[in-house]
Amino acid sequence: MPYLSRIRINPLRAASRKLLASPRAMHAAVEGGLPGLPEQARTLWRLDPDNPHRPHLFVLSTGAPDWTHLVEQAGWPGADGDHYAVRDYAPLLQQLAPGRSFAFRLTANPVQNTSRPDKPTERQQSRIEDGVRRRGFRLGHRTAAAQLNWFLTRTAKWGFDVPAAPHLEGIGGADNEPPRDIRITVRQRRSFKKGAVTAKEAHVVLNAVTFEGRLRVTDPALLTERLLGGIGPSKAYGCGLLTLAPLSERE
């Protein structure tokens, strides 16, 4: 059974600063709240810094979690109020139906695959020159336009579409298509070590992009698969969690 959790993070604590600065450390902290082995099921998480003084950590897990350790290390263990909330995710999944609209938020790592980068790094050039056939290179999209295009060209296989913005319906752009009800709210380049080694291969660089807007369900089964399995690469590092909020017909 899937569960969606929201945990309050206190950014002034030393342990919190470490978690907020390192997706690898945050991933380990998230896995520490789950009783099963990490390889048994996919766990998705996302950090929402809407309020930098009270960032929220969202986690989607297949089993019921316990976030006591995170509250003690990086929250307000002695303060009043709910330190974290855990909700059964099944009721939301049951609301998915063709034509139903939801507000959404997704932090993803938009990438493209290529056999030969335009400006290869030293390590990439070495792989190109060694003459051994390997899989292609995964490169991150760096411009907002490319990142937005990456999202909009994939929604059909994710089980939804993004309708035109309500106040712009009937107004066509350069390609005679109305602007979609989507926006990029955060673009962040993250660079960190994958492990406790110094090899360049263990260095991770990704472009985390937060998309927000309105979607319309076209295929509930496909959308359920993406909600539970995540979207795009770098899921262990805070990317891929798509969250929904129901909208009324008037909205």
Score class of each variant (00 low, 15 high):
Gln94Leu: 02
Ala97Tyr: 02
Pro98Val: 10
Pro98Asp: 02
Gly99Thr: 09
Gly99His: 05
Arg100Val: 11
Phe102His: 00
Phe104Thr: 09
Thr107Ile: 03
Asn109Pro: 01
Asn109Arg: 05
Pro110Ala: 13
Val111Thr: 15
Gln112Asn: 06
Gln112Tyr: 13
Arg116Gln: 10
Pro117Cys: 07
Pro117Ile: 12
Asp118Pro: 05
Asp118Lys: 11
Lys119Val: 05
Pro120Glu: 00
Pro120Tyr: 01
Pro120Met: 02
Thr121Gly: 07
Thr121Leu: 03
Arg123Asp: 08
Arg123Gln: 09
Gln124Met: 08
Gln124Cys: 02
Gln124Trp: 03
Ser126Arg: 15
Arg127Phe: 07
Arg127His: 08
Ile128Ala: 00
Ile128Ser: 00
Glu129Leu: 09
Asp130Gly: 06
Arg133Lys: 14
Arg134Tyr: 04
Arg135Thr: 12
Arg135Lys: 12
Gly136Asn: 08
Phe137Lys: 01
Phe137Trp: 05
Leu139Ser: 08
Gly140Cys: 12
Ala144Val: 08
Ala146Val: 08
Leu148Gln: 13
Asn149Val: 06
Leu152Pro: 01
Thr153Ala: 08
Arg154Phe: 04
Thr155Pro: 02
Thr155Lys: 00
Lys157Cys: 09
Lys157Thr: 14
Phe160Lys: 07
Pro163Asp: 07
Pro163Lys: 07
Ala164Cys: 06
Ala165Trp: 10
Pro166Tyr: 04
Pro166Val: 06
His167Ser: 13
Leu168Tyr: 10
Ile171Asp: 10
Ile171Gly: 04
Gly172Val: 07
Gly173Cys: 06
Ala174Val: 15
Ala174Lys: 15
Ala174Cys: 04
Asp175Val: 00
Asn176Pro: 01
Glu177Met: 05
Pro178Val: 15
Pro179Val: 12
Arg180Val: 08
Ile182Ala: 15
Ile184Ala: 03
Ile184Lys: 01
Val186Glu: 14
Val186Tyr: 07
Arg187Asp: 09
Arg187Ala: 13
Lys193Pro: 07
Lys193Arg: 15
Lys194Phe: 07
Lys194Gln: 11
Lys194Arg: 11
Val197Ile: 12
Val197Lys: 14
Lys200Arg: 10
Glu201Ala: 15
His203Asp: 13
Val205Gly: 01
Val209Ile: 13
Thr210Gln: 09
Thr210Arg: 11
Glu212Lys: 06
Gly213Trp: 04
Leu215Trp: 12
Leu215Ala: 08
Leu215Tyr: 10
Arg216Ala: 02
Val217Thr: 05
Thr218Trp: 01
Thr218Met: 01
Asp219Gly: 04
Leu222Ile: 03
Leu222Asp: 09
Leu222Arg: 14
